[in-house]
């Protein structure tokens, strides 16, 4: 596997305390990789470390041939990684179309190809492109949030608990969106609270606990692992 993203023994955190301890992780091209683990395991922190949102004190972050350790988020965005936060991930007082336009803010020149791509992926959004994003349902808001992040044609998309607070029906819809996005050639790294469902749908998974790597493998392997099942998946 040629890794698009390679986190190599990353140690770091916010301020002085280290939350991640020697965490390593890889995401290949065209792959959906999920990070699961108990609360406080450092899942979201691991994802934020990719995006330059915390202080890295050890290890290095390689992306598509570049060492991006210590880069500022806006440089990382331009290099091809987009990040969708867990909450407050849309502009509520702006229309769907304007949300997408802001996602493509850094892109020079015409945005119409990017709009076409996102609207092809999410026909629902095209229909309602003048609607204020804040008036949408939870699932549609996630579509706007993911659409916004896709406007810059990223190579890798980071999703922080995209199904948090959504009903099982919407969860399945979000997972389907992830597959569709992956099929357009964008790799996805996501953090999930719903470990069972997420491992069943992802290509590969990592189990973190207390800021360290615990297990890794294909989703199916991890689901079949007794230790993983007992520790995190409620038997």
């Amino acid at each position: 596997m040629t890794a698009l993203l390679a986190m190599e023994e990353i140690t770091g955190g916010y301020g002085d305390a280290d939350i991640l301890l020697d965490v390593s992780l890889k995401v290949g091209k065209d792959e959906i990789v999920v990070i699961v683990g108990p609360n406080g395991a450092g899942k979201s922190t691991a994802m934020k470390s990719v995006f330059g949102l915390l202080t890295i004190r050890g290890g290095r972050m390689m992306f598509d041939g570049d060492n991006i350790t210590g880069w500022a988020p806006n440089r990382i965005v331009q290099r091809g990684i987009c990040y969708v936060p867990q909450v407050d991930n849309i502009f509520r007082e702006m229309s769907i179309h304007e949300n997408l336009e802001m996602g493509g803010f850094l892109k020079k020149g015409d945005l119409s190809a990017a709009f076409d791509r996102v609207y092809t992926l999410f026909p629902d959004l095209k229909e309602r492109h003048k609607t204020l994003a804040g008036s949408l349902s939870g699932g549609q808001r996630q579509m706007v949030a993911i659409g916004r992040a896709l406007m810059l044609d990223p190579k890798l998309l980071l999703l922080d608990e995209p199904t948090a607070g959504l009903s099982p029906k919407y969860m399945e819809q979000i997972f389907q969106i992830c597959r569709d996005v992956r099929d357009t050639g964008v790799a996805i790294l996501l953090v999930e609270q719903h470990a069972k469902q997420a491992l069943a749908f992802a290509d590969r998974g990592y189990v973190l606990a207390a800021g360290k790597n615990r297990h890794e493998g294909t989703g199916a392997d991890l689901l079949a692992d007794r230790e993983v099942a007992e520790m995190f998946l409620g038997g």
């Binding site: 988020p73 407050d88 849309i90 007082e93 702006m94 802001m102 803010f105």
Partner: peptide, 22 residues
């Protein structure tokens, strides 16, 4: 205008505006 919308975006959600590179 692009920058007018950027102003609204910054007012609406400052963190997301920064993540979008505004």
């Amino acid at each position: 205008s692009k920058w007018g919308k950027a102003m609204r975006a910054m007012s609406d959600n400052p963190n997301l505006a920064l993540l979008s590179g505004i």
